[in-house]
Amino acid sequence: MSSSDIFISETIGTAVLILLGGGVCAAVTLKRSKAFEAGWVAIAFGWGFAVLTGAYIATKSGAHLNPAVTVGLAIKGGTPWGDLPVYFAGQLLGAMIGAVLVWLAYYGHFKAHLSDPEIVGEQSGQEGMVDRAAAPKAGPVLGVFSTGPEIRNVVQNLTTEVIATIVLVLAILTQGLSDDGKGVGVIGALLTAFVVVGIGLSLGGPTGYAINPVRDLGPRIVHSLLPLPNKGGSDWGYAWIPVAGPLIGGAIAGGIYNLAFA
Rank of each mutant, 00 (worst) to 15 (best):
D5E: 14
I8A: 10
T11V: 01
T14D: 00
V16S: 00
I18N: 02
L19V: 05
L20T: 05
G21P: 05
G21K: 05
G22H: 08
V24Q: 02
C25R: 12
C25A: 15
A27D: 05
A27M: 11
L30R: 08
A35H: 14
E37F: 13
E37I: 09
A38T: 10
W40T: 10
A44P: 07
A44T: 14
F45D: 01
G46R: 07
W47H: 11
G48A: 14
F49Q: 01
A50I: 12
T53M: 15
G54Q: 03
A55K: 00
A58Y: 00
K60R: 12
S61I: 01
G62K: 00
A63F: 14
A63E: 00
V71Y: 03
G72S: 11
A74Y: 00
K76M: 08
K76T: 01
T79A: 04
W81I: 12
Y87E: 02
A89C: 04
G90P: 05
L92H: 05
A95Q: 00
M96Y: 06
A99D: 04
A99W: 03
W103C: 15
G108H: 14
F110K: 12
F110T: 13
D116C: 10
D116P: 12
D116I: 15
P117Q: 10
V120H: 06
V120N: 04
V120P: 06
S124I: 14
S124P: 01
G125W: 08
G128Q: 09
G128M: 12
M129D: 04
V130W: 12
D131K: 03
D131E: 00
R132P: 12
P136T: 10
K137I: 03
G139S: 14
E150C: 05
I151Q: 12
I151W: 06
R152F: 13
N153M: 09
V155H: 15
L158D: 06
L158E: 08
T159W: 02
T159G: 14
V162T: 07
I163L: 14
A164R: 03
L170H: 13
I172Q: 07
Q175K: 14
L177A: 14
K182L: 11
K182V: 09
G183M: 06
G183S: 11
G185C: 09
V186R: 13
I187Q: 15
G188E: 08
A189E: 02
G200D: 12
S202R: 04
G205P: 02
T207C: 06
G208H: 06
Y209W: 14
A210D: 09
I211A: 10
N212M: 04
N212Y: 13
P213C: 09
P213T: 14
R215H: 10
D216H: 04
D216W: 03
P219Y: 02
R220W: 09
I221G: 02
V222L: 07
G232V: 06
G233P: 03
G233H: 05
S234L: 06
D235I: 03
W236D: 10
W236N: 12
G237Q: 05
Y238G: 00
A239D: 13
L247A: 14
I248G: 08
G250Q: 06
G254H: 09
G254Q: 12
G255T: 11
N258I: 05
A260H: 01
A262Q: 13
